[in-house]
Design a binder for these strands. Structure first.
Lengths: 222, 222
DNA sequence: GTATGGTAAAAAATCGATTATTTTGTCTAA
DNA sequence: TTAGACAAAATAATCGATTTTTTACCATAC
């Protein structure tokens, strides 16, 4: 029986959590903005209690700031933080990738090829690229999945969300996309050939290029 | 004006969060135990709403598991997870320490000496060692504080809490305590001498020794 | 003209009660 | 005797309303 397990198992009670997280990462709220709880309640068509529970979880996750008796606020963006996130992503994702290449089995190889293929085929122009974003996240997740450390994966996912707040500030740039897509396929190649060192080097470069995109968009205000 | 900032700033609204966190890390609840919300409500003398918000935050933080419509549960302990946590702590705390030694200033040196001294002087027999635990956490936090990465510090703190769930399973062992205390002072020495490499090596050893304590206690069931 | 104090409006946090879901216990039928 | 279904109890999740705190505005004094 292939019982279908919900993607974000455990916390599935509130779809509001996923919706809010997506909108926060996607930049649907301005950085520094104070969230009007009543407005959210109406917009997402949800009660106060589930909404507040979702906000609390997101605050603990780092996508919101909770101020003493002053509600919730979208965290400010800063050059320093972007640098911090990118650097740490480089360290942690590189570490995870090397480990994954050691431990990944044949199923992983197949998953990886599938994820890369789906990403390549994704229609960027579809729903404002939302589907591409989902597949992109999924690809990176698949890449490091067999690293053997639940906590490392958790931190990487958290950093990814934070990073994407910067990367997704501006409009799509098809030229850059091309280049990054190429790297995705090279990453798969190196992973399949079990070349951990080279894969890590490429990942460093991949994150650095994404960082430059994110930095440019951040500096263009938005 | 040396205005005192609450330790866990931002989320200060509910002291219930801190109390629960302390009790979870301190092992006041059995691993795998399902939390009876009404009992908690009574025990901590708090309303349902603040309690649920605290539980949600703790679940997002990783000190609780939230199951779909089945409330909250204390995460199970496992050898695999302990290994994972210890290994990652070694990587991240070592990384942070090296960076802190590069960036730390004179104020840091003073803070470090102070933290180490307070830890040494702490009365272990006082309130079931609770005060020692607090100072021990504070010492390690001080050690890596100037590493320059907010996110790295965040992850380290999270791992520390997870690690302590294992380390604090059993009763106090004064003989081991002696040895670890000695290492704390050596760490300060190396930090003051700006010997990043040696400090990191000692930190690796320090975490490994703590790991052996934690593992022994875990294997003694509890 | 600026600063201060007070009042009104807004918003966040919390409470008490209701609703929905899961778990437990019991009874019946194979 | 066991398995299954139903009912009852327990518990989690949610709702609507109340309380508390903050923010905005305005009047008055200096």
């Amino acid at each position: 029986m292939n019982k279908h397990i919900p993607l974000s198992a455990g916390t599935a009670s509130s779809p509001i959590y996923d919706a809010l997280r997506r909108d926060l990462v996607g930049g649907r709220f301005a950085a520094g903005e104070k969230l009007a709880i009543n407005a959210l309640k109406e917009h997402y068509q949800v009660g106060l209690s589930p909404l507040r529970e979702a906000l609390n979880k997101l605050a603990a996750y780092g996508l919101l700031i909770q101020e003493n008796q002053r509600g919730f606020r979208v965290p400010k963006l800063s050059r320093e933080e972007l640098d911090d996130i990118a650097r740490l992503r480089t360290e942690l994702e590189g570490m995870a990738l090397e480990r994954a290449i050691v431990h990944g089995d044949a199923v992983w190889e197949a998953d990886l090829l599938a994820a890369a293929h789906r990403l390549k085929r994704a229609d960027v122009s579809l729903d404002k690229g939302e589907e591409w974003e989902r597949l992109h996240t999924q690809f990176h997740r698949t890449l490091v999945a067999p690293c053997g450390s639940v906590w490392l994966l958790r931190f990487i996912e958290q950093l990814h969300d934070q990073f994407d707040r910067y990367r997704r500030l501006g409009p799509k740039m098809p030229s850059i996309r091309q280049e990054l897509d190429e790297q995705h396929h090279q990453l798969v190649e190196l992973a399949l050939h079990r070349d951990g060192k080279a894969a890590r080097a490429l990942m460093d470069d991949h994150i650095h290029k994404s960082y430059e995109v994110a930095l440019a968009r951040y500096q263009a205000h938005a």
